[in-house]
Simulated scan of single mutants.
Amino acid sequence: MTMTVNKTKHDHIILCTIDELVPADHMVRKLEASIDWCFIYPLVENLYSRFGRASIDPVVLFKMIFINIIFGINSMRRTCREIEVNLAYRWFLGLSIKEKVPNYSTWSQNYIRRYSNSEVFEQIFVKILSEAMNCGFVDLDTVFGDSTHQKANANKNKYT
């Protein structure tokens, strides 16, 4: 029996689109098909100037939050790194392979400077939650609660 040695080359040219490489049943495809993200533009229009350098597309910024939350990535920096290498995430954001992913610092500063004093987050959350419920993505039969801020009362005789 002979041993096989993998001599993989990393300089292959692939002639296909990102669309062909993202599986049909991937979660990003379900999100894209279920939510019309264009509703974000009129909500944030007054927060952007018509002058100066071009901004990052606000839909891209909000979709990056979705990637962060839905796929359980616990930091903005790591989310940006994952988007750099994950074709499904790039497809979802509408970024080509050659386009740069927004820097985590730019991403966070947009929220701090542009959105912190507005009701944009709540409006977008309510809209997406209602669409998710209409599509059957939200299960209302099970409710989870976080009681980390409640004091436990294990002593049954304390108030007798």
Rank of each mutant, 00 (worst) to 15 (best):
K158C: 01
E122I: 11
L15V: 13
I97G: 06
P58C: 01
T2R: 08
Y48W: 02
I124F: 13
V60C: 06
M1C: 03
A152W: 13
I14K: 04
R113A: 02
K7A: 01
V120W: 04
E84P: 01
V143Y: 07
K156W: 01
M76V: 10
R114Y: 00
R53L: 01
N86W: 03
R78H: 10
A33N: 14
R77H: 02
F137E: 03
G94C: 02
M133I: 15
N117T: 12
T142K: 13
I97D: 01
R81F: 02
I73K: 08
W91Y: 15
S34K: 03
V101Q: 01
I35D: 09
C135S: 13
L31R: 00
N157F: 08
C38G: 09
A54W: 00
Y89L: 05
L43D: 05
I56R: 00
Y41R: 10
L95T: 00
S118K: 09
G94K: 02
A154H: 11
M133R: 13
S108Y: 11
K100W: 03
G136C: 05
L95S: 06
A132N: 04
I40S: 06
I83H: 03
S55N: 10
D25G: 03
M27L: 14
D25W: 09
R81Y: 02
A152N: 13
A88C: 06
A54S: 10
T2I: 07
Q123R: 11
T17C: 07
P23F: 11
E20C: 11
I35Y: 02
F144N: 08
D57G: 07
A152I: 15
R81K: 11
E122L: 13
E119C: 02
M76W: 10
R50K: 14
V28H: 14
F71T: 10
I65Y: 06
P58Q: 03
K151Q: 07
D19L: 06
R50V: 08
T17S: 15
T106N: 13
K151W: 05
V138C: 10
W107Y: 15
G94D: 04
H149G: 13
S96V: 05
F144K: 15
K7L: 09
F62H: 10
I97C: 12
E20A: 12
C80W: 03
S34W: 00
V22H: 06
P42S: 00
D11L: 11
S49N: 05
A24V: 11
P102C: 03
L87Y: 07
T79F: 02
T8Q: 06
T148E: 13
E84R: 07
V138P: 13
Y89G: 05
R81H: 04
F125G: 02
I83K: 02
V138S: 08
F62M: 06
A132W: 05
K7M: 07
T4Q: 14
A154L: 15
G136D: 08
D141F: 09
V22T: 02
I18L: 15
V59F: 01
S118P: 03
G136Y: 12
C80I: 04
R50T: 07
V28W: 11
A33H: 09
Y48D: 00
A88T: 04
N6S: 10
Q109W: 00
I56F: 05
L47G: 01
S49K: 12
V5S: 04
I97Q: 09
F144C: 14
W91C: 00
I18D: 14
I14F: 14
N86T: 09
R90P: 01
G72I: 11
K63W: 02
V28T: 14
